[in-house]
Design a binder for these strands. Structure first.
Length: 155
DNA sequence: GCCAACGTTGGC
DNA sequence: GCCAACGTTGGC
């Protein structure tokens, strides 16, 4: 089983939005980056765990936990001309973009902010989100990092 | 296949 | 709103 960190702008889709979904699941659509597409395709497995990270907001950080509940499949928004995520170059025969379904697990008692993560840089050496200029919206998290980060919830 | 221009991300 | 970083596009 693998661990992931998945970013979303809370104005667009937040941990509370996920918790409010009828089955507390949501297709993680709109990813338009080949590296992430390949991670979805090659590495994501149902049962994987993920941090829900809020970006571009007042307090960027990890706000909750979720579980991956599907294999990768084509993102339907790429075929929808009315969608912001429409990609005219993608076809149903050869879809360019994939997504996975995620399921709400729980909110953290309090967010683990980016600042807190930085304060524990030593333990979290190599965590991608702490590296300069990382813009990937989905990144892998090593098990040791996952555990170290979760411990910060109690601090 | 190079690379300049452009667009996007995301913290601050 | 600024701007650094970096992925993508497209002309050549």
């Amino acid at each position: 089983m693998a661990y992931w960190l998945m970013k979303s702008e809370p104005d667009a889709f937040s941990i509370d939005d996920l918790a409010a979904r009828p089955k507390q699941t949501e297709p993680w659509n709109g990813v338009r980056n080949y590296q992430v597409r390949n991670m979805f395709r090659d590495q994501f497995k149902p049962g994987d765990e993920a941090f829900f990270y809020h970006s571009s907001c007042e307090l960027p950080g990890i706000y909750g936990l979720m579980k991956v509940v599907s294999a990768a499949y084509p993102d339907p928004t790429q075929f929808d001309p009315k969608s912001d995520y429409y990609d005219p170059k993608s076809t149903r025969e050869d879809p360019r973009w994939l997504l996975v379904d995620v399921k709400f697990e729980r909110k953290l008692k309090k967010p683990i902010t980016l600042t807190m993560l930085r304060e524990h840089e030593k333990q979290l050496d190599g965590l991608i989100i702490l590296q300069r200029g990382t813009r990937l919206s989905v990144t892998p998290v090593k098990p040791a990092h996952w555990n170290a980060i979760l411990k910060l919830e109690a601090t």
